[in-house]
Amino acid sequence: METHTVISKDGTTIGYRQLGQGPGLVILHGAMESSQSHIQLAEVLSPEFTVYLPDRRGRGLSGPYSSTHTIQTDIDDVSALIDKTAATNIFGVSSGAIIAMHACLQLPAVKKVAIFEPPIGVDRESSAQMMQRFDSEISEGKTSAALVTAMKATEMGPPIFKYFPRRLLEWLTTMAMSHEKSPPTSSSHGGDETVAPATFRELAPTLHYDFQLSLSLSDEESISNLREITTEVLLLSASQSPQYLRSAVDRLENVLPNINRRVNFTGAGHGVTGNVDRRGQPKRAAEELQKFFST
């Protein structure tokens, strides 16, 4: 594996990891993730594809978000990477899938895109209220409280968490972060300047921008605009993901005009595409991606 960088339109450095051989495939990670979240998926795909794993802004190898950040900035980052690598395939995970779909509307170089459970169609009013609370807790240094706010809003905690009082959830989150360590990593002969995986404390502030991505596709008009996507699409969902994510894929199935097929990972949750230590099933996810992108 190697690490490289590209400069986006506004001058920000976007770092990415690269491994494998064959046609280029860009994997855009989701919220509370970084380029390392899909390393194992990339390894399975690497015999057939050159896989590019960018760190979205605010993470790892890439520069920070700016005060003027919009979804167009995210598209510019993807565009810079595609211009450099000549990749024509994108796999977008969760909020990364929102970026991928918007990129398809602007970047004709993208020929195929796989979409996994983008958080679209969320209630704008309740989401705005949640974001206000989250931003306030982050600004006050209450990272555990902010993560609990996000976890409850996105239904991403274990099912039993819904029965726990908030104070207990915040304590458990604090304990988890206190034990979270970044394991050392070694450089490869390919010039990999690998950094340790990002921690939850480091990733927490980036959730603000993932919430903004969800709001960009929260009304009927914005979702209807996705009908303009002519790129060939693979839709992916997981049977144990929160209902609103599965419903989002249902809506896309009725909107996107060029769907190759839809695959539902039975018995799996929203983390199915990630590394095994985060309850992922990378081999299972890679099998469907190989079928689609190899055709």
Rank of each mutant, 00 (worst) to 15 (best):
R133S: 06
F134A: 05
F134N: 13
D135I: 00
D135G: 07
D135N: 13
D135P: 11
D135T: 15
E137R: 14
I138D: 07
E140C: 03
G141R: 06
G141K: 01
G141M: 07
K142Y: 08
A146E: 11
L147R: 09
V148R: 15
T149A: 02
T149M: 00
T149S: 08
T149D: 00
A150L: 15
A150N: 03
A150Q: 10
M151F: 09
K152F: 00
K152H: 03
T154H: 02
T154L: 15
E155S: 06
M156I: 04
G157F: 11
P158H: 09
I160H: 15
F161P: 00
Y163W: 09
P165F: 00
R166Q: 14
R166D: 12
R167G: 07
E170K: 08
E170V: 09
W171T: 15
T173I: 03
T173F: 05
T173K: 03
T174L: 13
M175P: 06
A176F: 00
A176D: 15
M177E: 06
M177T: 08
S178P: 00
H179N: 08
K181C: 09
K181E: 08
S182P: 09
P184M: 15
P184R: 05
P184D: 12
T185V: 15
T185M: 10
T185E: 15
S187N: 13
S188P: 04
G191T: 04
D192Y: 10
T194L: 09
A196G: 09
A196H: 10
P197E: 04
A198W: 05
A198C: 04
T199S: 06
T199G: 14
F200W: 15
R201D: 14
R201F: 11
E202T: 04
E202N: 11
E202H: 15
L203P: 04
A204K: 01
A204F: 14
P205D: 07
P205V: 13
L207E: 10
H208A: 12
Y209F: 12
Y209S: 02
D210P: 04
D210V: 00
F211A: 07
F211H: 07
Q212Y: 04
Q212L: 11
Q212P: 09
S214M: 11
S214Q: 10
S214C: 12
S214F: 06
L215A: 15
S216V: 11
S216F: 05
L217V: 04
L217T: 00
L217G: 02
E220A: 05
E220F: 13
I223N: 02
S224T: 07
S224Y: 03
S224W: 01
L226S: 10
E228V: 01
E228W: 03
T230L: 07
T231R: 08
T231A: 10
T231E: 10
L234T: 03
L235R: 01
A238N: 07
A238P: 12
